[in-house]
């Protein structure tokens, strides 16, 4: 008797011939927390990508079901939003939350307070107390993006577009340190920007329709900043290259210790261009 025949006889009636239950296949993943648990303290995009599902829709359900706690989980969630946007055929529309669009390479993310997960069918609350429709000023939006678009339908918090290398960001307004260390791409702020706008930039273009706070363009090496109204004090502080253009007036000490580049404004506050060793300050309407 063959082994299979022997086993069949021994277990006759005690085991099923066919499988009774279907089992899921593919990468074993139980949810956002399960994914986060398997990643290091400072998760890298490649690590998240390796563990995340391949399918954009599945990533989207992870994004919607997650309640990230702390910086680490926030960063993982942010990378997931980018992966979902890159893999979905249509723009990803989600609620604003810290780190959304982190390291985005392509696709479009729209942050909208009215966005709700598909399973809520447009209802006002997701059952966990999260109320749809109220705007939350999220921080670190679009950090380190290198491609794609991020549209923020409301005010962004601090560090908008921090270290971006490509792609584009549009926001209604932004907090401090927006577009810091930018190397490429473009950013549009349709309202006012906070302090320290575009600090240390070496490329890219930033346009602010409203006011810019203090120290915009500090340590700027290259790139362009355009502000629709006035700017705060220390505009272009210690800048060594690039262009800053204001349709309004610059505050006190614009171009202080400037080494290169160009600042153009309607007018300047006191001590403009003090201690500068290079660069140019131009006043509009004057040659």
């Amino acid at each position: 008797m063959s082994l299979s025949g022997f086993m069949g006889e021994a277990y006759a009636g005690k085991v099923r011939g066919e499988k009774r239950l279907e089992e899921k296949g593919g990468e074993f993943l139980l949810g956002f927390e399960d994914l986060a648990k398997r990643l290091e303290e400072r998760p890298k995009r490649a690590e998240v990508e390796a563990l995340a599902p391949r399918n954009g829709e599945t990533i989207l359900s992870l994004v919607h079901s997650a309640s990230p706690k702390g910086r680490r989980e926030g960063m993982i969630w942010g990378i997931l939003t980018s992966l979902a946007a890159e893999r979905l055929p249509s723009p990803l529309v989600i609620q604003p939350q810290d780190y959304a669009g982190l390291e985005l390479h392509g696709g479009t993310i729209i942050l909208d307070a009215k966005a709700s997960p598909p399973w809520l069918n447009g209802r006002g609350s997701d059952g966990s107390g999260k109320v749809m429709g109220s705007w939350k000023r999220a921080h670190h939006l679009g950090e380190r993006i290198s491609g794609g678009r991020l549209v923020v339908r409301g005010g962004a918090g601090d560090y908008l577009g921090h270290e971006m290398r490509g792609g584009g960001i549009v926001a209604a307004s932004c907090g401090d340190y927006a577009f810091r260390n930018m190397r490429g791409g473009w950013g549009v702020v349709r309202g006012d920007a906070g302090n320290y706008l575009a600090v240390g930039n070496s490329g890219g273009k930033v346009a602010v329709k409203g006011r810019a706070g203090a120290r915009a363009g500090w340590l700027m090496r290259s790139g362009r900043i355009r502000v629709g109204r006035d700017a705060g004090e220390y505009l272009g502080l210690m800048m060594s290259g690039g262009e800053i253009s204001l349709l309004g007036k610059a505050g006190a000490r614009a171009g202080w210790r400037m080494r290169g580049g160009l600042i153009e404004a309607e007018g300047y506050g006191p001590e403009a261009g003090d201690d500068s060793v290079g660069g140019r300050l131009l006043c509009k309407g004057y040659p």
Binding site: G13, K14, V15, R16, K19, R20, L21
Partner: peptide, 11 residues
């Protein structure tokens, strides 16, 4: 679940 899957009797 393990038992249920094993045989009809167990189910």
């Amino acid at each position: 679940t393990f038992r249920l899957e094993r045989s009809v009797d167990d189910e």
